[in-house]
Every structure is written in C-alpha cells, then in structure tokens.
Amino acid sequence: MAFRELVETRQSLVFNTVLGFLQNREDAEDVTQDVFVKVYEAIQQFKGESALSTWIYRVAVTSALEFLRRKKRKKRFGFLSPLFGEDNQPTLELPDFEHPGVVLDNREKAGMLFKAIEQLPENQRIAFLLNKLEGLSYIEVADIMQTSLSAVESLLHRAKSNLKEILKKQYNLGD
C-alpha cells in the first residue's frame, strides 16, 4: 500500500484517537504527524501479527501518552526556567475542550466528561477512549492494549464507576 493511501485512509483514526487524549486540536495535529513519521520509519518492523490498524492505534496511543508525559515533565520543572532565563509558556490548565464530533445536545455533558477523563488512570483512560470515542469493540480494545477480554471488561467497568465518582465530586451531583 502506498504511503499516501495509508495516511489518507488512517488519518481520521489517528487524529481522533490522539485528540481524545490531548484535548487540544493543535497538539493533536502535531502528534498525528509524528505518528505517521514513526509508522513510515518502522513499517519494516510491522510483522503482520495483528491488523495494520491495530498496530497504528498502538503507535497513536503511545505517542499521545508520551506527549502528555513530556508536557507534565515540562510543567513540573517549569519553575527552573526563570533561573536560566528561558521564556516558557504559562503553565495554565487546559481550557474546556469541545470535541467537534459530539452531537449538539451532548456538548456540555461531553465537556464535563472530558475533564473527568483526564483524571482517570492511564489504562482505564485508554480503554474508555478507544471504546467510547473510537467505537471499538472490547475485542479490538483488548488487541490494541495486548491484554485479555476480561481485563478490558474490568478496566471499562472501573473507568465508568471512577468517572461517576469524579463527576459527582466535581459538579456536586446527587444522582
């Protein structure tokens, strides 16, 4: 498959996945480009043991998480920058995120949900986003995460109950 075709058929898959993690369009565009550069350079290492899309999902998730870790590290050591006169950007919290694909009626609720998703443990966040945002089945999620079906079921169950707890605390919901 020509590289152009690969990019054009998988770009929305990569972009949407990465956007779910980063919740910022510019960062997601940047990381999406990065994912395809990695795919181009590592395509020889792809052994065909899993579907090409599964492998690309893995690269996308790993790259998005790496980006978030780098950003966190930068923020953590940001206090050192004034000592060296580096002109760093202000370390403000992310503004409210609006996913462009969410139906109009759900925009406000989805905004609240994305804020809560940020606070989930990494594995639960991966499982939840792949299942709810990308619409992947449990089996597909298990393939991407290289884990068992029952592990994914448990991760999603915990993710949902943790999200409810976070939302109740954050927005004072009584239910």
Partner: peptide
C-alpha cells in the same frame, strides 16, 4: 447521562 454523552459521536477530522 454525562458518562454516556459520547454516544453517537463522529470522528474528528484533521
């Protein structure tokens, strides 16, 4: 309701 708010979500395009 909030947890289920991603139902029917469309993929974002780059």
């Amino acid at each position: 309701e909030i947890v289920n708010s991603l139902e029917g979500v469309q993929r974002a395009e780059p």
